[in-house]
Design a protein around this nucleic acid. Sequence first.
RNA 1: GCCCCGGUAGCUCAGCAGGAUAGAGCAUCCCCCUCCUAAGGGGAAGGCCAGAGGUUCGAAUCCUCUCCGGGGCACCA
Length: 586
Amino acid sequence: MKKRLEELLLGAVDSLKEKGILDRAIEPLVQVDRRRDALHGDYASNLAMVLAKSAGQNPRDLAGLILESLPASPIVTKTEIAGPGFINFFIDPQAQFSIIRQIHEQNSQFGKSRSGAGKKVQIEFVSANPTGPLHVGHGRGAAYGSAVSSLLQAAGFEVQREYYVNDAGRQMDILATSIWLRYLERCGETIPFPGNAYRGNYVREISTAIYHRAGERYRKHAAEVIDGLPPDEADGGDKEDYIDAMIERCRALLGTEGFDAFLQSGLEDILGDIRSDLEEFGVYHDEWFSERGLAGSGAVQKTLEILGSADLLYEKDGATWFACTRLGDEKDRVVVRENGQTTYLASDIAYHWNKIERGFDILIDVWGADHHGYIPRIRAAIMALGTDPSRLEVLLVQFAVLYRGKEKVSMSTRAGEFVTLRELRNEVGRDAARFFYLMRRCEQHMDFDLDLARSQSNDNPVYYVQYAHARICSVFRKLDEKNWKYDPGQGMAHVELLTEDHEQELINNLSRYPEVIENAARKYEPHLLIQYLRDLATDFHTYNNAHRFLVEQAELRNTRLNLIGAVRQVIANALGILGISAPEAM
RNA sequence: GCCCCGGUAGCUCAGCAGGAUAGAGCAUCCCCCUCCUAAGGGGAAGGCCAGAGGUUCGAAUCCUCUCCGGGGCACCA
């Protein structure tokens, strides 16, 4: 509808150009907007105001000229010039009704578009380090990333969802060491636990499992373990130095094979937990990309060579630096440490290079807000590798703060206070968790109210939307109980019976749906879809309260059933994209 | 000090790519089930869109500065 009006206006512009009223060089952006107030018609355009200056005319006069040149169309019943120069369009109700038929024909496909057709998008999200369970912060990224993926798919893009598994590097070494130390405790050794080791309960559980499996095979005497290590933070030393020395000791005592056994158990256990957690949350990844695999393939070295041959690497203080200041970053960054190990950045550059080579048109990274400083160096790397940096889109998700009523829930990692995604899901349920995560723009800091999300009451916006769907299902069940037959064909033949304001309002909102999808996908903003759902649900509840659907008169009944059936379909489609269920009864 | 995000009703937030009288939900106050689930609906009240400049026909929306919150500035990942 919008597009058709825009075409009409373009036609008018062309003919004004021929008449010499408008300069041929002008290529106006023709815009048509929906009007909120029915008084101003169904759609309006600001075209005359936009063109007024370049045409040297006052906007209202120009609007008149545009209307004179506007090609005739059966869908437009009336036009008017209003306010400072708006052109208002009134649409033939008959034409508006066609949306109901369209929804019934397309069903679950309704609302999808082809605007992204032929474009391959890769979206990487969650990618939490496999050193512990997902917490509520990861949950927001997971909900957001998966909703954006579905949204892009609905807009026609070919989407690949990826999880980058940081299974290489120091953090994994710390994990393996932490597990081993807990294992030694289990064996009966007394060793002070390093300040910088992982102290979550899951570490103990993993070590216990190893103990049951392997017995005391990996046991070493406490004295042997701590002998000659530098002081830990608690003893006035440096916790980083201490943990590094402990890792070395662990490696020396266990040998590569033994160390890897601990590392591998930890990785498998935690990654398995993350996978099942995400699956239960309705979040899927097409690809789990291993950092270790990347390093093993020699890709990191190769990428460094490319940077080197582009003359973007230099040596200083025994380390190798990436000269990213030349490409817009504020500092140069280390890629190979003094000790010869490559940094996380080096792998990440190689990883992005790998993504580019896989042939995606758009790369999306969903990151926590704390990573924003990381963006310039990745962009620099992409430029250095000869790729247009605008192909990389980084979406930052701000933090979520949990509240229980008025009380802020502490997010400290210290024992017992840590809130995992799994705990959140257990407490509020999958649907509410997703809905609440997606309700806000991702740039918005979020206050997540656990009590509200959990409440089974009308305060809870999730139920409000789901209830609209369930209510419609219930109407169709009641229809069967009355032994009336639903005849969609008869309804379609009598759409003109939908004369109530509430019905017009609903139809109007239904026809907005494809635009909402398009818009939300373009802006990566699933919250727009939630907003829309709340509007649509409100319209339905209002309608439901004011009118009955199961009336005696068959034509009217079938017409109304067609309308609410369409509402049900659209709600189901939208909830589907958001990964939230559409219950048939509540 | 520099960088990112935010500052809209008592609270939590929308406000689409500048457009016509700034919108929801919660909380407050009134009202509505003989009827398809009241997990619903109708109404009232509530605002100098943080502040100051600028851009223009027109600014909550764009630009600059200031103030107030949150986060980030590693040879960690």
